[in-house]
Nucleic acid binder design. Structure first.
Lengths: 210, 210
DNA sequence: CCGACGAGAGAACGCACGTTCTCTCGCGAC
DNA sequence: GTCGCGAGAGAACGTGCGTTCTCTCGTCGG
């Protein structure tokens, strides 16, 4: 067993994981300020004392929650893309919007946790603004990576990546307000037009997956 | 004078206006839950008693603030468009992004108050979700109106409007995170490509205003 | 000049939160 | 068996909120 002496000595790592999982769901569903530490404690089934042994404060927990969610999302989209290695570079870039569509259709979907958190607390809270900016940078970098496979030059690649990134954020924020997952497919169509315009090559037909 | 007996009988309408103006700024800058009624009272210079004579509760004030902001924003963009009546239909549609660019460059810009509020409180709070959906519907209707002048058929017009709307939301949410007003111009370029693709007609050169 | 009404300022109240403290109890060591 | 350590449950504490209440004082009618 990789744990220390049996289950004893208060498994701080296990607590951290349980608390982050519980807090992540609650913060995402109701906002950060609206969820109290007691609700997190109850959802995680961890006594309050251990909560404050695992995290110095609520701010700490919030930051850990955001960083974990960043890793989870990145993992999720990369796993999705791993199933599309046979696709054309354009198809793989567009697959990001297919992934979004699947996500938007989930019952629990309530927009982008990072944009929600940033909108709620903004620049006032560094422990939120930092992870949010890091996540968005990572997401943009992922898109940039996929755009890179299209074979455009650097200037064109940067421009296209920036535009697809803005577009993805647009879908991410519009879908929860309208409640329609199809927003992702509209955005996908826009991306398709952008890719065609940039590469001067036709891409797969709308909504069709090879 | 249009007021009732002098300045007496507690000018409820004046109070409402002052309170909404103060609350609007504070909510926008720091979020809704982070701003207490006492801060609003202090900023507006209105005694607490009159605050609760003008509004039944904080929820009421929040809703009034959002509705007023909706009217203000709509007025602002329509005034901006009124200066572009000489432009082509495509130019007038793209002018929405020029208006956004001006807005993003303001010091106080902190994203879309409606998306921020929705992200903060989400569907949990009907007094927020309602005005947010109404505002977004109105904004989309404005875009649909401008798209209508392009002379496309209804199906194409609806599709283009939806896409430009998603795009505008993308710029609106990306700009505060990156802090770059140029996001609006990137989105403008995407819109230009979409319009060209939809109308099969070239539009004005990038970033050029006739 | 007096009395009463109403407005302003802020204290008061009930509640909920983040955080800490205390009490109790189970369990292992000797 | 007994002692003591440590963990769990939740009470307690300080703070800040939304909302209401009270007290004081200026002002106006008579």
């Amino acid at each position: 067993m990789s744990e220390s002496s049996r289950t004893a000595v208060a498994d701080v790592d296990g607590d951290r994981a349980a608390l982050v999982a519980a807090a992540s769901d609650l913060f995402y569903a109701h906002g950060i300020q609206a969820v109290g530490m007691d609700a997190v404690r109850a959802e995680a089934g961890v006594p309050l004392k251990r909560v404050y042994r695992a995290f110095r404060s609520k701010d700490d927990l919030v930051e850990a929650t955001l960083r974990t969610r960043d890793a989870d999302l990145t993992g999720s989209v990369r796993r999705f893309l791993a199933g599309r290695t046979q696709d054309s570079p354009a198809g793989r870039l567009l697959a990001v919007f297919d992934w979004m569509h699947d996500w938007f259709a989930e019952d629990a979907f309530r927009g982008c946790a990072f944009l929600n958190a940033f909108g709620e607390l903004g620049d006032d809270a560094a422990h939120v603004a930092g992870p949010v900016r890091d996540h968005k940078r990572a997401f943009r970098a992922l898109i940039r990576e996929l755009v890179g496979e299209l074979g455009l030059d650097d200037v064109e690649s940067e421009a296209l990546a920036e535009r697809v990134y803005i577009l993805a954020n647009g879908a991410l924020v519009t879908a929860p307000v309208t409640g329609s997952p199809a927003t992702a497919l509209e955005a996908r169509e826009v991306a398709r037009v952008l890719i065609e315009a940039a590469t001067h090559m036709p891409t797969a037909a709308p909504h069709g997956r090879p």
